Computed example of a mutant assay.
Amino acid sequence: METLRHVVLLVHLIGFAVLFGSWAVQAFGGQKQFGKIMEYGLLIAGVAGLALAAPWGLPEGAEPNYMKIGTKLVILVAIGALVGSGLSRQKRGASVAPAVFWLVGILTVTNAAIALLWR
């Protein structure tokens, strides 16, 4: 079970990498727009994160940190709302507000930082 949990963790990290990587490409060399690939990264990270939140494959006596899981889920939903609204604006021909674009990157890094630093 522990090996399966590590595989799900790897998939979760790949989802984060797809989301943040596609955002970073746009932020530092693109047109500061949202792409469909960001939605896929968000979906991969979200589904794998929910699978990791289940209390299976944990070492004996370990309890999941539900406050951390809830915080990360709220941030994930906020990122999804921002990306979804940005893609919707782009479909109508409008541009994404710079604050919304940069907030997605900040929230994505914040979510990774919470995963790494919150024990």
Rank of each mutant, 00 (worst) to 15 (best):
A81T: 07
I14R: 07
L9P: 00
S95K: 06
V18K: 04
G84V: 04
I69K: 06
H6N: 12
Q33R: 15
I75D: 03
A113P: 08
V74A: 15
V47T: 09
A45W: 09
L4E: 02
P98M: 07
I37L: 14
P59L: 05
Q33D: 10
H6C: 01
I69H: 07
A81G: 02
A24M: 13
L9W: 07
A99Q: 14
A27I: 05
I79C: 03
S95Q: 05
G57S: 03
T108C: 11
H12S: 04
V11P: 06
R89P: 00
A62V: 14
A97T: 07
S88V: 00
I75W: 09
L13I: 15
V109R: 08
M67C: 00
A45F: 11
W56M: 04
A78H: 03
F16W: 14
M1Q: 11
I37W: 11
Y40S: 03
L42F: 11
P64M: 13
K68C: 04
F16N: 08
L76R: 04
T110I: 15
A51K: 02
R5K: 14
L82Y: 09
L82S: 01
G46R: 10
F16M: 13
G57T: 08
A48G: 00
L116N: 12
F28V: 11
H6E: 13
V8K: 00
F101Y: 12
S85G: 08
V74L: 15
V11A: 11
N111A: 15
G21A: 02
E63T: 14
T3K: 08
A27R: 15
E63F: 07
L4A: 09
W56A: 06
V47G: 05
I69P: 06
N111P: 06
W23K: 11
W56I: 12
K32R: 15
K72E: 03
F16V: 12
G41C: 01
L103S: 11
F34W: 09
F16H: 13
K32H: 13
A78D: 02
H6D: 08
A81E: 13
L50S: 10
G80C: 10
V77Q: 05
V25Y: 10
G29M: 14
A97C: 03
Y66P: 00
K68A: 01
G61P: 07
S88H: 14
E63M: 13
W23E: 10
I44T: 07
W56E: 04
A115R: 04
S95M: 08
T108D: 10
V100I: 06
L10K: 05
N111G: 13
G21N: 08
F20S: 01
P59C: 00
I14E: 04
K68R: 13
G57A: 08
G93M: 10
G49R: 10
N65L: 12
V11F: 05
V104F: 05
L87V: 02
F16D: 03
V7K: 04
K72Y: 05
V7W: 12
V109C: 08
